[in-house]
């Protein structure tokens, strides 16, 4: 699967699985509405400095944001490729009309580019050629995973709510899996724009108010507890996923791809910290103590532990 960097892995792990490739970090697509300039600069810096092997780009939440990214997309792809990163183009998670499907067809017909399919339509169009299945496709069991692999999936990014026990069983299928380990988790997608609704606007006349919240709009309970983060059509956790404590276990079980979810923070530093963890230079506790957090959110890992997803990580 291409140009993975040679990385130092803990000797014990290397001994356990001497023939497997080393674990690597991937940078998921920016899901928020960042100004094109910021968006481009973010990826340029990732290309130049971040110890990640794969970078996903593309709009996954709202088709209305796409025209703004389109002009800077080629530059970003070129810069990432030049830096030796494998570039993956992510599709929209919810496609509802002809225009969106046409765009999908266009992306799927680019044979030179690896595409991450985020809904069934994309899967359908990519069927039979190598592609990645994104976290917005429902993959819960070995039956579905096998079908996807037969359809050409070379890697499957698992949905956020899967417990570790399911992940362990899915690893046994041998289909390469990728797991998000950092950042807010996508929880839901809708036809309705909540950013617009929060401002008493409709989706069609939204004035792109989602741009105001580069990490999502905080939603608190009536008791004042931080709860969710809204990003246009998407609802994310307020809590910030950090699977640092479980990554060594996942590496042992056979996971090789760990995804970081971009936030408006020093993501190069975030990548370095996770790289250090994978390389055995940093403990999970040290990682948690050092990592920046979006809006000061708590670190959570409940889904992985098979309990409510908002449950805070145990330190």
């Amino acid at each position: 699967m291409g140009n993975m960097k040679a990385t130092y892995l803990q000797p014990v792990l290397t001994a356990a699985r001497p023939t497997t490739p080393p674990a690597c970090l991937t940078m998921g697509p920016v899901v928020f509405n960042w100004a094109p300039q910021k968006w481009r600069d973010f990826y340029f810096r990732i290309a130049d400095e971040a110890p990640v092997d794969m970078v996903y780009i593309g709009e996954v939440v709202c088709a209305k944001r796409l025209p703004f990214l389109a002009p800077v997309l080629p530059d970003v792809m070129a810069r990432l490729a030049a830096a030796g990163k494998e570039v993956v183009l992510s599709t929209l998670a919810l496609n509802m009309n002809r225009r969106e499907l046409n765009l999908l067809r266009e992306m799927a017909s680019e044979e030179a580019v690896l595409v991450e399919a985020n809904d069934i339509a994309a899967l359908s169009l990519l069927n039979g050629r190598p592609h990645i299945v994104g976290p917005y496709v429902n993959v819960y069991n070995e039956g579905t995973l096998d079908l996807l692999a037969k359809g050409g999936a070379i890697r499957v990014v698992l949905p956020a709510e899967l417990p570790g026990s399911s992940i362990a069983l899915l690893i046994e299928t041998g289909v390469p899996l990728e797991i998000q380990v950092f950042g807010r988790m996508p929880l839901a997608i809708s036809a309705r724009c909540y950013h617009a609704r929060a401002e008493n606007l409709h989706k069609d006349g939204c004035r792109f108010v989602c741009e105001r919240d580069p990490d999502g709009l905080s939603v608190d309970t009536l008791d004042g507890e931080p709860f969710l983060a809204v990003n246009g059509l998407q609802t994310l956790s307020h809590g910030c996923l950090n699977l640092g404590q479980h990554m060594m276990d996942l590496v042992c079980k056979g996971i090789r791809h760990f995804r970081l979810q971009p936030h408006m923070m020093d993501m190069v530093e975030v990548a370095r910290l996770y790289r250090n963890l994978l390389d055995g230079h940093l403990s999970a506790d040290e990682l948690a103590a050092t990592l920046p957090r979006p809006d000061g959110a708590a670190f959570v890992d409940g889904f992985y532990r098979g309990i409510p997803g908002l449950s805070a990580m145990e330190m």
């Binding site: 839901a188 309705r192 969710l228 098979g306 997803g309």
Partner: peptide
């Protein structure tokens, strides 16, 4: 459902149990 059905993990985020699982 105001979210796209089958694509919502809000319930499991709070309770550990979801429609899908």
């Amino acid at each position: 459902c105001v979210m796209a059905e089958g694509r919502c993990a809000l319930s499991s985020y709070v309770t550990g149990q979801s429609p899908n699982m």
